[in-house]
């Protein structure tokens, strides 16, 4: 399980897990799960486009993910779920058209959708590490105002928090996470990682700092367990990520309900 060809898989999975968990906490806090689902799909279209013009897929992922994030931020102030849905189908349709034009073969699509953690190269691990450092720095910088505006945008705005700029910054952060996670765990499961473990963490932890740490830890546990299970069973890693994330959430909810039931007899 720890053979040389697995090392990159473990490293990449670890990096993706930590940053997805941390950013995911705010995805849940800000009710942006739909955007967090749509943005990786925008990234998917970018990868398809990059394949078509012969550019680096990672570049395509980053550019398209950031573009979808800014689109959702700019248009989605009020009816954000409708705008998000439209942005999502636009990017997917664009991806479908680009794939049809490039004539890419199916395994490449499967890899983008469901991830291919075993195929991660050293260069991708380095790129991931840089992105993790960057995203971590941004998150640390805006942590407090971001938390504040997640609790009540109205009150935070009255206190002078630049809520719109912050929302755009946050969605770009989601986009960076998507761009780096998509090639590893795939578009569909990048999303599972940004919602399940953080939602579990916030049901259990009391303070925001602890919730952040717990979200990263649970996400890490999810990915590590998924890599090990995928290795042992030979089944796709995506299945295990989705299943473990759901299990974490259900268990955390049950634990929180049980604790509350005991607190008020």
């Amino acid at each position: 399980m720890f053979e040389p060809f697995m090392v990159n898989a473990w490293l990449a999975g670890t990096l993706v897990a930590v940053v997805s968990g941390a950013v995911g906490l705010f995805v849940v806090e800000r009710h942006r799960a739909f955007a967090a689902h749509a943005i990786p799909n925008g990234a998917f279209a970018g990868a398809a486009g990059a394949t078509l013009v012969g550019a680096s897929p990672l570049l395509g992922l980053v550019v398209f993910a950031v573009a979808s994030a800014l689109g959702v931020a700019a248009l989605g102030r009020r009816r954000n779920d409708v705008v998000t849905a439209l942005a999502l189908v636009t990017m997917l349709a664009l991806g479908a058209a680009l794939l049809a034009a490039s004539g890419a073969y199916e395994p490449a699509i499967d890899a983008l959708l469901f991830g291919q953690v075993l195929g991660v190269s050293r260069g991708e691990v380095v790129a991931l590490a840089l992105l993790v450092v960057g995203a971590g720095a941004v998150l640390a910088l805006v942590f407090r105002p971001l938390l504040y505006s997640s609790l009540s945008e109205e009150v935070a705005a009255a206190r002078g928090v630049a809520v719109r700029a912050l929302d755009a910054t946050f969605l770009v952060l989601v986009a960076m996470t998507a761009a780096l996670a998509v090639p590893v765990v795939g578009t569909l499961l990048t999303f599972a990682l940004t919602v399940g473990p953080p939602a579990a963490a916030r049901a259990l932890a009391r303070g925001a700092g602890r919730a952040l740490a717990l979200a990263a830890a649970l996400s890490l546990a999810c990915v590590w367990a998924a890599i090990a299970s995928a290795y042992l069973s030979g089944w796709p890693i995506g299945f295990f990520v989705g299943a473990y994330a759901a299990v974490e959430y259900v268990v955390a909810r049950a634990a929180s309900a049980w604790r509350e039931g005991r607190a008020r007899p």
């Binding site: 849940v28 799960a33 739909f34 967090a36 689902h37 959708l113 469901f114 795939g186 569909l188 499961l189 999303f191 599972a192 990682l193 919602v195 399940g196 939602a199 796709p236 995506g238 299945f239 295990f240 990520v241 989705g242 299943a243 994330a245 759901a246 959430y249 259900v250």
Partner: peptide, 15 residues
């Protein structure tokens, strides 16, 4: 969140 978790699990099952 509930939608997201169900969606994630279903996507995994599809895979």
């Amino acid at each position: 969140v509930a939608t997201g978790v169900v969606l994630g699990a279903a996507a995994g099952l599809t895979a």
